[in-house]
Design a protein around this nucleic acid. Structure first.
Lengths: 196, 196
DNA sequence: CCTTGTTCTGAACGCATGTTCAGTTAATCT
DNA sequence: AGATTAACTGAACATGCGTTCAGAACAAGG
C-alpha cells in the first residue's frame, strides 16, 4: 500500500501539529514517540517526516508559532493611555490569551528545556520581548507616580507568574467565566502595585 | 570485576538520590536514563537497583521525601497571632523554603504527570494540604476583616503561583538576597489582599 | 584467618526509539 | 488518457531503553 484515499497535506499537516501539541502537553515531549503521534493522526510513522525534518523541529515549530502569535496579537491590541489602563489591558489580555490556548501555553513553559540550545535562544528572546512589555508599563507607572513598585523587574516576574498560574487550575465550564477570573486577578494586581 | 573499593550503601544511596534529583530537574524525568544516572554516580546501571525497585519509584521517593519535608517544616514553624502576621510568615517561609532547594521544587511541579496515578494521588493530596494552609489564612483574614479577598480559593492559587515563580528567575549570588526578595514579595502580597 | 553478607560488575533480555527509503498508490496536470 | 507529482506504506537500521541476574570482589564480625 501507499498513498491513501483522500490524503492531502492540507489536512494531514495541521493534524500532525494539533496532535503533537496535544500529546506534548499531555505527556511531555520526551515521553511522546513519533509512532504515538502517527497512530493518533492515522498514518504510518514515516509519513510524519513529510511535515517535519525531525521531532525537535516539530517542537520548535509549535513553540515558535505560538510565540509569534502571542507577540503579534499583543501588538495588535489597543494601547490605552496611562499606566493604570495599560496595566489593566495587559492583565486582561494575558489571561484571555492564555486561557484560550492552554496546551500551547503549557508546552511553551514546560518544554523549553527540551529545545536545542539555538532554538531555546530564539524562544527565550521572544518571551523577553513580551515580558519586557509588562516591565515597561510598570516602569512608566512608577515614573509617573501611578504605581509604587520599587523593583519593576522583580515585580514583572511576580505578576507574570501569578497571571500565568491561572492555567494550572482554570477549566472551561467551571464556576467562573474568563471575564470573572480576569476581574479578580486585575483587582489583586492593581492593589499589589498601588501605594497601599 | 564486582564490588569496588570503598563502596558502601551509606555513600552510594544518597549519591543516587542526589544525582537523580539533579538530572531529573535538569533534563526531565523522561529524558534521563538509568544509565545516565549510573554514569554520574560512578557505578554500572545494575547497581542502581540496590537502591530503588525501578525508575518510577525513584521519582516518587524524591517527590514524597520533598513533600514530607515541606509539610513537617511548615508545621514546625512558629505560628504568629493574627491573619496579617500569619500571612507574612507563610510568604517568607515559602520563599525561603523554595529558594533553599530549587531542584526539588522544580521537579515537584514539573514531573507530576510522570507519576503513576496512585503515586500522583499521594503527592497531590499533600500539596492540597499545604496550599490549604494558605487558603485558611486568607479565609480567617477575610472573616476578621483584615483582608479584602472575596474569592479566597482563587486568591490562594494566585499567590502560590506568584511566590513559587521566584524559582524561575532567582539565582544565588544575584543582586538580591533571599531576605530582600522576600521583603519585596511580601509587600506585593500584603497590598494585593488589602482593602486597597 | 575465615566466613558471611554486602555491593557491585558485565552481560544479556526483549522491546521501543528516531529516522531513512524504495516502492506504491492517489491526486493533479497536460 | 497518459504522465507527473504528492502522499503514504512497510520494512529496515542502528541505537538506546528499563530491568534482571549469576558471579566476583570487597567489607565486617567472630
Amino acid at each position: 500500500m501507499a498513498r491513501t484515499q483522500g490524503s492531502h497535506s492540507d489536512i494531514t499537516g495541521p493534524k500532525v501539529r494539533e496532535t503533537a501539541l496535544r500529546l506534548f502537553a499531555q505527556h511531555g515531549y520526551a515521553a511522546v514517540s513519533m509512532r504515538q503521534i502517527a497512530r493518533e493522526v492515522g498514518v504510518q510513522v514515516g509519513a510524519l517526516y513529510n511535515y517535519t525534518p525531525d521531532k525537535q523541529a516539530l517542537l520548535f515549530s509549535l513553540l515558535k508559532g505560538h510565540m509569534d502569535e502571542l507577540l503579534a496579537t499583543w501588538e495588535a491590541e489597543p494601547r490605552p493611555d496611562g499606566p493604570r489602563d495599560r496595566l489593566e489591558a495587559f492583565v486582561r489580555f494575558h489571561i484571555r490569551f492564555n486561557l484560550d490556548r492552554p496546551e500551547a501555553i503549557f508546552i511553551s513553559y514546560m518544554e523549553l528545556r527540551n529545545l536545542a540550545p539555538e532554538n531555546f535562544a530564539v524562544i527565550e528572546a521572544q518571551r523577553k520581548v513580551y515580558e519586557g512589555a509588562l516591565e515597561a508599563i510598570l516602569r512608566d507607572g512608577q515614573a509617573a507616580d501611578a504605581f509604587s513598585v520599587p523593583d519593576t523587574r522583580l515585580a514583572s516576574y511576580a505578576l507574570i507568574a501569578m497571571l500565568t498560574g491561572v492555567n494550572t487550575w482554570y477549566r472551561a465550564g467551571g464556576r467562573l467565566s474568563i471575564e470573572e477570573v480576569a476581574d479578580i486577578y486585575w483587582d489583586m494586581v492593581r492593589k499589589s502595585v498601588s501605594a497601599g
